[in-house]
Amino acid sequence: MDAAVAEKPARFETVMTPAEPAIMKERKPKIVTEGVTVHYGDKQAIYPLDIKIPDRAVSAFIGPSGCGKSTFLRCINRMNDTIPTARVGGRITIDGEDIYDPALDVVQLRARVGMVFQKPNPFPKSIFDNIAYGPRIHGFARNRTDLEEIVVNSLKRAGLFEEVKDRLESPGTGLSGGQQQRLCIARAIAVNPDVILMDEPCSALDPIATARIEELIDELRENYCIVIVTHSMQQAARVSQLTAFFHLGTLVEVGDTEAMFTNPQERRTQDYIMGRFG
């Protein structure tokens, strides 16, 4: 009997989290960064950072305030260019194309890489013009019919059309907070981007408006590469497939969202997501 036990050295073998996230096997990498650094004047905000962000999926950046997640997000559409003291090093490519290439048109880049901010920021214009603005300046519409089609489609994809279809000429600022945020998302998708960056898009919204945005993000991921910065761990767990944890300007851990929230490998990630003292 004991011999039988000895013959079968059945050990508990643990099936651990693979080194490369499973989502990267299913999707091609859209955004790839190598050794990205950011300085604000003398202060270094991001230490050399390598990450691959999958296409047609939602990637969430989490971490405590000041960890560099928003700074890094802003590198992806070169928003940091607008800050005079900011210096970005390393290499960021989208579909293999270096976005810091001096020959690249930044305005075109920002059409490809849309951004949604923490506080909804509609232009002080009508709902229609909020969305028509981008397609107009990028020359996407040949005539009024084209433009109307873009506006209606964008509103539909953002899940806002039914609520505003009878008042497209009223000001965008007159909408509720959640509607304004969906208007901003509609505005971002009106110019046909590949990538949508969202910097805490729900932090100014109530739970119902938040749920609507999350539902929308889930629908949009079929067609876009979405990167979201969020302070809500539950939100990251709900909407994303890949999660990256930032701390003090470094990328500590990146993995499939499911693994990150049930069994993170790094001590600092564990402490942060469980709300423990680090």
Binding site: M233, A237, F261, N263, Q270, I273, M274
Partner: peptide
């Protein structure tokens, strides 16, 4: 809303 080891 426990996470990771707490949830386990």
């Amino acid at each position: 809303q426990p996470m990771a080891a707490d949830l386990r």
